[in-house]
Amino acid sequence: MSEQKTIRLVVTRQDGPNENPYREEFVVPYRKNMNVISAFMEIQRNPVNAEGKKTTPINWESNCLEEVCGACSMIINGRPRQSCTALIDNLEQPIRIEPMNTFPVLRDLIIDRGRMFDALKKVKAWIPIDGSHDLGPGPRQSEEEQQWRYELSKCMTCGVCMEACPNVSGKSSFVGPFAVGQVALMNSHPTGSMRAQERMEALISDGGLQECGNSQNCVRACPKGIPLTKAIATMNRAATKHMFKKWLDF
């Protein structure tokens, strides 16, 4: 009988928001089709570290396990990404796992992404309909418009673009690439465009579009392949027009 195959993981842990991070190593039995999350689940059932010492299970966020809810972002082997699609077979070992510490770390891999949801409020990322009562069909849209909006609308607020962006940090107020994408999404809808200027104002205020340094990290990191740089370019052009118009109206 061959020896049981195992997986080695080195996890950066932290007991609380103000505690110091530390590393803990784990060895987990290998099975086919495993991802980082199923390795964590194995540790839950047998919370013992590589030294054979009893420890607490790792705390992390996840929900859908199919890369559509955005919960499970973390840094795996140096790269911010979703952990549910991080298949063990595709990862170099020991697998190094850290929290995305552009955000406040609450415990282990759990982070506070509240600023992203606040940003969505700030840029008014919604279609201002009159109400939810029955008002018949919405405006017609071409297949082409729908496909562009659909690409932008896949954003799951996972924060990977924020972690990858050199201009987002605990100190900077940059709303982040995802928020620009959401403005592009709302402004490209026939009803949404009626409030395009308001969103634009929010987007060029403090921490807005001008903070983007065009590193293009976001578009490479986005797990959903959202055309973020294209959205940023579109919004930059719109911002210039907006400023010019404001200047003319002045």
Binding site: I129, P137, G138, R140, S142, Q146, S153, G192
Partner: peptide
């Protein structure tokens, strides 16, 4: 049908026919 129309008005990017309908 009314619910689908309402969601459409809220901006759900439903797939379209060539005529621009749902």
């Amino acid at each position: 049908p009314g619910i689908i129309y309402m969601m459409d008005r809220m901006g759900v990017p439903f797939n379209r026919t060539p005529e621009g309908l749902l």
